[in-house]
């Protein structure tokens, strides 16, 4: 190996000096790296810094399937937060499984009242005492506060891929109508839509929407309080849809929770007849 290196160096002096990696090639390599390495390499030079800071790069890096990370965020207290990389945790690379991430700067101000109201594409939607929202990227530390003062029952954050815009959504369930308010991070303003349908509010723990196929989804009780329906708010078209649940689920899924498995839905009725005994329905 050593002698090989020396030999090659000799031939190299005869050949023209190697050209630096061009931008396309740098992107090719960066797309295969996890976010932690990419952030570190912002320090390499000014050109790498501007390349990595480009929002266009952030988008394609997130979309690149080569280096996805699944993280579990654990807010310990005002000064500690840990991101557990689920995949490396499973692979038992304990050194890389847990990383200390910068705690949101306003955490001390919000204190215990801060809670997670939704998540989408590496961003967390935090809420503070049912009033203001904070959109936070735990990896980069970037945060944006969104002022909000209306009462609501359901919340979530979705992503409009065509406009490359994040949309914060709240839903207020009234006796005779449903009010949807949404905030686009690009236009920075709230809009309001009213629907003449009505639903009853679900349990507190079911109020964060799941984002899938361009829409935020929640399970709510039907107006007659007999069964459940799945409602979705399309963040691109900005409209509310009702998705009928399979019959056998609609009746007893008042306490169901939605999870999604990659591209399909699953609905878990949280019937705790026995500890650890839950039924899981996968709905595709």
């Amino acid at each position: 190996m050593k002698s090989g290196c020396r030999k090659r160096k000799k031939t190299k002096t005869e050949a023209p000096p190697p050209e630096p990696f061009n931008e396309d090639l740098m992107i090719e390599i960066l797309l295969k790296l996890p976010i932690k390495s990419v952030l570190r390499f912002k320090c390499l030079s000014k050109s790498w810094f501007s390349l990595i800071s480009d929002p266009q790069f952030a988008r394609i890096h997130f979309d690149a399937a080569a280096a996805p990370t699944y993280k579990l965020l654990n807010l310990v207290n005002e000064s500690e937060a840990y991101a557990v990389d689920i995949e490396s945790a499973l692979c038992d690379v304990s050194a890389h499984a847990v990383s200390n991430i910068p705690v949101i700067a306003r955490f001390d101000r919000y204190g215990d009242s801060l809670s997670v109201a939704g998540s989408c594409r590496g961003f967390l939607l935090l809420q503070c005492l049912f009033t203001d929202f904070v959109v936070w990227n735990p990896s980069t530390g970037i945060q944006k506060q969104i002022y909000y003062s209306n009462w609501y029952h359901l919340s979530g954050i979705g992503y409009d891929s065509l406009d490359d815009d994040f949309v914060v959504v709240t839903v207020t369930l009234r006796a005779n109508k449903t009010v949807v308010r949404y905030f686009c991070l690009r236009t920075k303003c709230w809009s309001r839509v009213e629907y003449s349908v009505s639903y009853a509010e679900p349990k507190l723990e079911l109020r964060n929407g799941e984002f899938l196929n361009g829409a935020l989804h929640w399970i709510v009780k039907s107006a007659d309080n007999l069964g459940c329906v799945l409602i979705g708010f399309d963040v691109r078209e900005k409209r509310l849809l009702e998705i009928p649940l399979p019959n056998h689920l609609a009746l007893f899924s008042k306490r169901s929770k939605i999870y999604y498995l990659k591209r399909e839905f699953s609905i878990t009725p949280q019937q705790q007849l026995k500890m650890n005994k839950k039924t899981l329905f996968v709905w595709m």
């Binding site: 390495s37 570190r40 912002k42 320090c43 890389h96 990383s99 910068p102």
Partner: peptide, 15 residues
């Protein structure tokens, strides 16, 4: 450089 490293401190852990 010091400023930049401070911004993303967590990215420099466990190298």
């Amino acid at each position: 450089e010091v400023q930049l490293r401070k911004t993303h401190e967590w990215a420099f852990e466990g190298v």
